[in-house]
Amino acid sequence: MNAPAPALILDAVSKEFAQRRSLFGRPAAPVRAVDTVSFVVNPGETLGLVGESGCGKSTLARMILRMTRPTTGHVLVEGKRVDALLPSEVLAYRRQIQMIFQDPYASLNPRIRAGDLIGEPMAIHGLARGAELETRVADLAAQVGLSAAMLGRYPHEFSGGQRQRIAIARALAVSPRIIVADEPVSALDVSVRAQVLNLMADLQTSRGLSYVFISHDIGTVAYLSHRVAVMYLGAIVEIGPARDVLRRPRHPYTRLLLEAVPVAHPRLRVRRREVLPGEVPNGVGLGAGCRFAPRCPMAQERCRVEAPTPRAIDGTRLVACHFAEDTPDLPKGLAA
C-alpha cells in the first residue's frame, strides 16, 4: 500500500493502574488495563475496536484523547508524540482529534443550550466569535441535520438521536482529522441508530475523517469499519481488514465472539452452537501464557507457558495465537 502517512499511530501503548491496597495489606501488582497495543489508522479510514466490557477499549480511547497518559509506549498524531505534549500544546492537539461519547443524555451539559454547546469549541480555540460564530454554528447544525431554530433549546428538549447529532456537531466544530467514537449509537433507539451511523459515514466521506470506532456491537462495527481490531483483556488479539476478520476470524476468541453474536435472521439459527465458556477474568495476575488460554477450546500446553506474539497471517492481518492456522471457520450461514 502506498498509503499517505497514517493519521494516528499507537506504538506499544500500555497502561497500568495501581491497585488500591487495603490498610495493612501488601501493595498489589498493578493491573494492566491496556497491554502493548500497536496499530495505525490511515486518513479517511475507520478502525473498529471490538471487545467485551473490561477489555480496555475505553482506557485506550482516553489515552488517544490524552485524557490519561500511557504508562509505556507512545501515541503519535501527525508524527508528534501526544503523550509528550507540553500542557501548552494540548489545546492545539484538541483541534486535531475529537470524541463522540456513548450516552448523549449524559455527555451534554444539561444547563447549556444546544447552540452554545456547538459553538463552545470554536470560542475556546478562537476560531470565530460574534455573528460569525453564530453563522458557523447554524452551518454545522445544518450539516448534522438540525435546524437553526432548535439551537436555543436545552439538551433535555431533544430526542436521543438529536442529542447525538449535537454531540457530533460539537466534535466537528474544530474541524478535527480524527474522531474517536465510543459506542456512539448504543444508547439510541434501534430505528434511530441507522440515521446516526449514516451521518457518520457521510461525514467521513465529505471531510476525509479518520474514525476510531469503539463498540461491543459487531454489526455496527462491520458497517462503519474498514479495519477491525479485536481486544481481549487489554491486548489486541487480532487486527486486519474488516471483511477478512469478520468473515474468517483466525483467533479463537474472535471466532467465538462472532459465533455469540445473535443471528440477524431466524433462518440462520444454529442450535447448540459453540459457546464461549466462562466469563472475562478481571485481569489481575495474568500468568505467563496466552491470556485467552483459560477459556480457549483450542488451548494446548504451549499456550499456557508461552504468550503468543502477534504475527502476520494471510498477509493482511496480525493474530496473536500460536495456532491461528488451525482455527476452524465459522459455521456456514453465520457470516455470509
Binding site: 434501534v190 430505528s191 441508530r193 441507522a194 451511523l197 459487531i218 454489526g219 455496527t220 462491520a222 458497517y223 474488516a242 471483511r243 469478520l246 468473515r247 462472532l258 453474536v261 443471528v263 440477524a264 435472521h265 440462520l268 450461514g333 453465520l334 457470516a335 455470509a336
Partner: peptide, 15 residues
Amino acid sequence: GLLAAVPRLDLLVAD
C-alpha cells in the same frame, strides 16, 4: 423499517 435499519453482519461482510 426496523428490520432494514439494523446493520446485518452477514450482509455487510458479504462479497
